[in-house]
Design a protein around this nucleic acid. Sequence first.
DNA 1: TTCGATACATACTTTTTGGTTAGTATTTGA
DNA 2: TCAAATACTAACCAAAAAGTATGTATCGAA
Lengths: 114, 114
Amino acid sequence: MPDFIFKGKVYYNPVQLVMEQIGGVWKMPILWRLKDHTMRYGELRNDIPHISDKMLTTQLRELEKDGYVHRQVYAVVPPKTEYSLTERGREVIPLITQIREYGSSLIEKEAQKA
Amino acid sequence: MPDFIFKGKVYYNPVQLVMEQIGGVWKMPILWRLKDHTMRYGELRNDIPHISDKMLTTQLRELEKDGYVHRQVYAVVPPKTEYSLTERGREVIPLITQIREYGSSLIEKEAQKA
DNA sequence: TTCGATACATACTTTTTGGTTAGTATTTGA
DNA sequence: TCAAATACTAACCAAAAAGTATGTATCGAA
């Protein structure tokens, strides 16, 4: 597997690309919430434990730039913004499902031992 | 999904745990090489482009500590160490396969556009 | 006229991750 | 006696990711 270029940046392998697009602590949890419905900013904020405004905003912006979520701003006061998955976002859900399942299985095994 | 504790550390969700165990730039590429055979340190080193001694060593140690790889040291000179997957390591391969496939599909789509 | 509601932005600090360079231990064979 | 081979270790630095704390714009309602 040789190096390749994606959107102007060099990657060493496909895993690295995926990690950059949906890796980190918050991106998959965000995508997961949007799995089957649109959500407002504040709803995401309330639904994802421990996330800060800064993290929620930056991660949403990156997911938008990379084509995973759609951002719909309504010109009302107080402001209202709705987030939803794009086609690409929907396509990545099975992968997240498998990662979550694997994580849960790790936790279960650990619980059995203790 | 509430917080939980795994080996003494608090996690916010299962994704975060998986990311910590096999995330980052190098761990999955390492596990992938060991997929169907034991490899010596130097073989891994030569086979994984751009990886440094420091990264290879630290990531192997963490994978060993977390139970994904087995480390077999032979008392010979010059030194010889063989790495192989444990049961847990083998179990995680399907997940890595899917992540790689997803990454490859991203690359393909991007190539079609350009 | 001020307040409340919402979705942010900004500045700053800390933590984590990764990269670079150089060095070490051991024994066999030239 | 010295070089070669292998699997590391250590010290240091840079970059990226994440956390914390505070501020802001807008408009309608009270």
